Amino acid sequence: MKDSDWFPRIGMPMEQSFGSLPSMIVQSRPCFSQKTIERKEAHMPQWLNYKELKAEIAFTDVFEHYEIEVKIKGDQATCSCPLPSHDGDSTSPSFSANLDRNIFQCFGCGAKGNILDFICLMDGMNPKDAKQFHQVAVMAKRKFLYKPQREAPASSKQKASSKAKVVVNPPLDFELQGLDQEHPHFAELGLKPETVKHFGLGYCKRGLMAGRIAIPLHDPDGQLIGYAGKLVDEAKVSDDNPLYLLPARRERKNVIYDFRPGLFLYHGHTITKPVNNLIIAQGFMSVWRLWQKGKRDVVSSVEVGLTNQQACLLVRLTDAKQGCVWLVANSYDRLNIEVLQKVGGNRYCKWIDAKL
């Protein structure tokens, strides 16, 4: 198969590339859908005091909602720009938010405003559009200010956990040793030795990964943050013994180590600069086989669906002018639909028909 069969001309209109897909899917859709907004808005007052609302919402709650990792010093929070429309340097901490005044600015792309403007931009809406701004404000008030009913008193263990420090996707200080890269299962999967070596795969004989293919996972900076495991003997798959095992949340010495796969793209760390053509596939196996077919710029979301953070990464990994995100057209699954919804407004999205 020629590259031209995989990558048609970039200039093709998106509507033509999507074939019979509904045109509404081409546009980026916010987390708060139009129907949800209209339904919720009908039961809430139409007038809002924006000034009070902007002061009452906490930026830390907003960061947590969008799964954005920030460094906080005093009343300033910094990170690489999380906005889907950001086209500048994605490696430097160009984004800054004042937690006291609830304002933000990105010194890379130039975006700035208040906390409601930030929520609008994260959801793909225009903060200068009065109707869209009001809709987001209504939902933001409900999301970030309405408190749930009081729950039963927590146990002493739960209270201790609530005070524990939470560390998200910390780099590992070790690597699994003694992995077998020549295990027969790789041949059964049709994987060549160079593919196994490139992805660092290996059969594990002991520990939590015993009987599984260990799959190294890296954050966007290339740091090893954990291992996934694929069960070799699929006859042993059960509710308690899944085919794929991901790192679990754990607590040690009052520190909670939380693994969040929605903050990175599998194999994304190998792409060091924006590319013209990037394939987003579902699952580890698809990535391995596409890479083996010569499609080296390929990533996966690990879990079903696509988070806002992963959508931002897809935008950053593709060229701002000619960048195209390719979807594997094996089905209209949740991943493909969410890529179209969250990335389609910033990058071309097209289909490839790959036999994996």
Rank of each mutant, 00 (worst) to 15 (best):
G211P: 03
H218W: 05
P193S: 12
G211C: 09
K197S: 15
F199D: 08
P216N: 11
L217E: 04
L201G: 06
Q223E: 14
I215Y: 02
Q223G: 06
D221G: 10
Q223N: 15
L189C: 13
L201I: 04
V196Y: 00
E194R: 09
V196C: 00
G202E: 05
P220M: 08
G222T: 08
L201R: 09
F199I: 05
K192F: 01
H198Y: 15
G200P: 02
H218C: 01
V196E: 01
E194L: 04
D221L: 03
M209L: 15
G200K: 02
I213S: 05
K205R: 12
L191F: 08
A187G: 08
G207W: 08
L191A: 02
L191T: 04
P193N: 13
H198D: 10
P216F: 07
K205Q: 13
I213L: 09
A210T: 09
E188A: 11
L217G: 04
I213F: 04
A210E: 14
R206Y: 03
A210L: 10
F186L: 05
K192G: 00
L208M: 13
R212V: 12
K197T: 15
D221A: 12
P216L: 08
L208G: 14
G200V: 01
A210N: 11
C204K: 05
E188V: 11
D221C: 07
P193H: 11
F199K: 10
A187L: 13
G211H: 06
G190C: 05
R212A: 14
R206W: 04
H185P: 00
P193D: 11
